[in-house]
Amino acid sequence: MYEGPVQDLIDELGRLPGVGPKSAQRIAFHLLATEPADIERLQHALQKVKEGVVFCDVCGNVSAETRCRICRDPKRDLSLVCVVEEPKDVQAIERTREFKGRYHVLGGALDPLSGVGPDQLRIRQLLNRIGTTTDGVDISEVIIATDPNTEGEATATYLVRMLRDFPGLTVTRLASGLPMGGDLEFADELTLGRALSGRRSM
C-alpha cells in the first residue's frame, strides 16, 4: 500500500478491465513521471469521453453525432445489417473492407450467468428496425456476427428464432474459419474476411 493520491490512483486504475494490481501500479508510476502537458491531454480525453460521445440513433454504435459516420454514409447498402456485440467488433469488421452494409450493436451477449437477458440488450431496437422502412429502404438481410463463443452462439440462436418470422428476410451467420472460444476482436483480418464472404443461411 502507498500513501494518499498514489494509492487512490492505483485503486482507480485497478478497476479497469484487464488491469491487474501490478499493471495498475506500473501505470500509476508511469503517469507520475509524465510531463504535465501529456497528463492534461489525458485528462481532457477522459472528460470528453462521457460528455462528447453519444450512441448512434440507428445502430447503437459509439458516435460523435446522433448518427454515426457509417449510418450517415450514402454509399452504404441499407438493405444489409450486420449484428455485433460491441463497438469494437464494428471496427474489426470495418478493417476487412468486405462489408458494405450497416451495423447493429447489441451492447453485449445473452449471458444469464451475468444476469444479461434479452431486455438488457438492444434486441427490441433491432426488431423495430427490421420492421420499419428506413431512408426508403427495407432491410432484406441480417448477418449475425456475435462472438464465436458460448454466449455469442446462444445469442445467435435467440436472434434467429426472433427473426425467422419476418417475411422475405434472409438471416445468415458468420461462417467457418472462426474457431469457437475466441473473441471476434482477436481474429485476424483474413480469417474474419473469409468468414464474412462464406456466411451461411440460418
Binding site: 450467468l113 464465436p148 463463443n149 458460448t150 472462426l178 474457431p179 469457437m180 472460444g181 475466441g182 473473441d183 482477436f186 481474429a187 485476424d188 480469417t191
Partner: peptide, 16 residues
C-alpha cells in the same frame, strides 16, 4: 492465451 482465436484451448474451455 485462450481469447486469441488461434488458441487450441479456447473452444474446450467454454461453459458446459
Amino acid at each position: 492465451g485462450v481469447r486469441r482465436t488461434s488458441s487450441k484451448f479456447g473452444a474446450r474451455l467454454e461453459p458446459f
